[in-house]
Amino acid sequence: MKKINWHTVRLIFVVFVMIFLFAFSLKRNSERKISKIDIKFESNENMFLTHEMVNNLLIQKFGGASTIQKDKVDLNTLEAVLDDHEMIEKAQVFSTIDGFLSTRITQKTPIVRVITDDESYYLDSKGNRMSLSENFSARVPLVTGEISERNCKPFLFLFNEIKKDDFLSKNITGAQIMTSGNVVLTNRSYDYKIVFGKPINVEKKLKNYKAFFQHAIKDTVIKSYKEVNVMFTQQVVCKK
């Protein structure tokens, strides 16, 4: 009579138990309801959206969180819904083992606020339009004059350069776009206008203005200037 190999039997039994537990756990996990929506903003710099607003967007898409199973949630669809929102740069949505629907939101960053006769709105770094928010007002330059969504792209490089520079973002408060395409900037500290010209040689012109300001601030005569012209890349021309 052949002797039973109990070691092999135990090994087979353990394997079957592990398969059963895995299948049982997988089934229980698939039947688990979404118990909570966890929303986190990656940056607190621009709070155009609130947790409640994002929560409502998600609930509108799949109904109440407690009424739907985890495996029924289409994460890609939810991400697409959030990404389509004009205030959201990027959204990540994933579910956790304990039944949480976790959402990570990166909001868009406005670089200017455009003011026309009919409306007012923000533009982000890519020229995308953003509506104003009742929750937050961004401290960005106000842009007026001959500008619209259709012709803003030539000026975006200038606006982005101002935004990313710590001194310029604090000093430049406005930009007027003339019919000729020239730009006139305003500053926070003094009454003079900065005649920038067309948005070409942007980096050189801004560098010249910063050098002028750092030198002129040491002299009280800066208060008497009415115009600072940086159109010519080789020099800065001031008028009293």
Rank of each mutant, 00 (worst) to 15 (best):
6 W>S: 02
9 V>H: 04
12 I>Y: 11
17 V>S: 11
20 F>K: 00
22 F>Y: 15
28 R>Y: 09
33 K>E: 11
35 S>V: 01
40 K>A: 14
41 F>N: 10
43 S>M: 12
47 M>Y: 05
48 F>D: 02
48 F>K: 04
55 N>A: 00
58 L>A: 02
58 L>N: 05
64 G>F: 13
66 S>A: 04
66 S>M: 00
68 I>E: 03
72 K>C: 09
72 K>H: 14
74 D>P: 01
75 L>N: 10
77 T>Q: 14
80 A>Y: 02
83 D>S: 09
89 E>F: 12
95 S>I: 09
116 T>M: 01
118 D>M: 03
119 E>F: 02
122 Y>D: 06
124 D>K: 07
124 D>S: 06
125 S>I: 15
126 K>L: 15
127 G>P: 00
135 N>A: 00
138 A>N: 06
143 V>N: 11
144 T>P: 06
146 E>I: 01
147 I>V: 13
148 S>H: 00
149 E>I: 06
151 N>Q: 00
152 C>R: 08
152 C>N: 11
159 F>T: 08
162 I>K: 07
165 D>P: 10
172 I>S: 09
172 I>Q: 06
177 I>G: 10
184 V>D: 05
186 T>F: 10
187 N>Q: 15
187 N>P: 10
189 S>A: 14
189 S>G: 09
191 D>G: 13
195 V>H: 12
203 E>C: 02
206 L>P: 08
206 L>W: 08
208 N>C: 01
208 N>D: 02
216 A>W: 06
217 I>M: 12
219 D>E: 05
220 T>C: 04
223 K>E: 15
229 N>F: 01
232 F>Y: 10
233 T>F: 05
235 Q>D: 10
236 V>P: 03
238 C>E: 01
